[in-house]
Amino acid sequence: MMLTIRVAALMLVLGLSAPAWAQRANFTWDIPKTVSVVDVPGQVDANGVPVKLLAVRSKEKAQVILQSVVDRFLSWGFVVPEAYKQPQLLREPMVTAIDTRNFISYTAILQVNPDNTTTVFLGQANLGAAKPPQPAGLPVFPGGSGVLTAQTEGAHTVSYSVPGKTTADVEAFYREVLTKAGFKEIEPRVFKSSTEEVSLKLAVTKEGPVAVRLVRRAATPDDDMRPGE
């Protein structure tokens, strides 16, 4: 499974909260054997929490990087929950620490690449600046749980899971709801109105529930050039 920046951002803020007067710390990452760095400009709003992201590719093995990250967290005096208390929401290993003084959480998600390098998604979530998440205006399948929202420039994302259903059930639900709302399916699982476009991504997780991801963005003139329009 290949991670995306937006998915990584959503993973960074699960189960965390803090007072509203927090300020950002000056912590810096130090990933061994770094090959390249992608600094994601701006910030992502994940469930109302501002998150800054960085993606680093390293030649070092994932386990060595993981230990290096934990050691750095500890050297900065951060609280690192024990391994069994660390949320493992993806197949990729991840570790989170909290700067309790400034109410910042730091998370690293490690993805092993086919060329034996490791991509490390690094996130800094300013918990103290959290605001109520903005609704995306997208319906959630009945019985859906673990709803997460993220907002970036030009896109609003909703992710959640649905137990006891199939991808066909969820797809049929959105096809009916979005059609009634004035959207047209311009290609499989992509719906467009005169002003907006909604894309639907579905997958069955290893635990069984259907993983749902909706992305809503403003339609552009180029969208009218899609095949079949």
Rank of each mutant, 00 (worst) to 15 (best):
residue 196 E to H: 14
residue 3 L to Q: 13
residue 56 V to Y: 01
residue 197 E to A: 10
residue 179 T to N: 11
residue 182 G to T: 09
residue 202 L to E: 03
residue 19 P to C: 12
residue 45 D to T: 10
residue 166 T to E: 11
residue 227 P to K: 14
residue 124 Q to S: 13
residue 44 V to Q: 03
residue 37 V to C: 06
residue 111 Q to V: 07
residue 8 A to K: 02
residue 186 I to C: 02
residue 147 V to Y: 01
residue 191 F to V: 11
residue 109 I to W: 03
residue 21 W to F: 12
residue 226 R to W: 06
residue 44 V to C: 05
residue 219 A to M: 05
residue 103 F to M: 14
residue 211 A to D: 12
residue 221 P to K: 06
residue 175 R to D: 09
residue 160 Y to W: 04
residue 26 N to C: 07
residue 175 R to P: 01
residue 145 S to K: 14
residue 43 Q to G: 11
residue 115 D to W: 03
residue 109 I to A: 07
residue 53 L to V: 10
residue 98 I to G: 00
residue 226 R to N: 13
residue 13 V to Q: 04
residue 98 I to P: 00
residue 194 S to T: 13
residue 49 V to L: 08
residue 78 F to N: 04
residue 10 L to K: 05
residue 42 G to T: 06
residue 210 V to S: 01
residue 71 D to F: 10
residue 92 E to V: 02
residue 133 P to F: 13
residue 169 D to N: 14
residue 40 V to C: 06
residue 88 Q to M: 13
residue 119 T to C: 07
residue 72 R to S: 14
residue 164 G to E: 08
residue 109 I to D: 04
residue 220 T to F: 08
residue 38 V to E: 14
residue 119 T to M: 11
residue 42 G to Q: 07
residue 120 V to C: 07
residue 26 N to D: 14
residue 208 G to P: 04
residue 147 V to C: 04
residue 124 Q to F: 04
residue 130 A to V: 10
residue 7 V to G: 09
residue 187 E to G: 06
residue 223 D to V: 01
residue 110 L to Q: 03
residue 65 I to K: 02
residue 130 A to D: 05
residue 156 H to Y: 13
residue 126 N to V: 05
residue 200 L to T: 02
residue 103 F to A: 10
residue 12 L to F: 12
residue 180 K to R: 15
residue 184 K to Q: 14
residue 151 Q to L: 12
residue 46 A to I: 04
residue 22 A to Y: 01
residue 226 R to P: 00
residue 182 G to N: 08
residue 170 V to G: 03
residue 61 K to S: 07
residue 190 V to L: 15
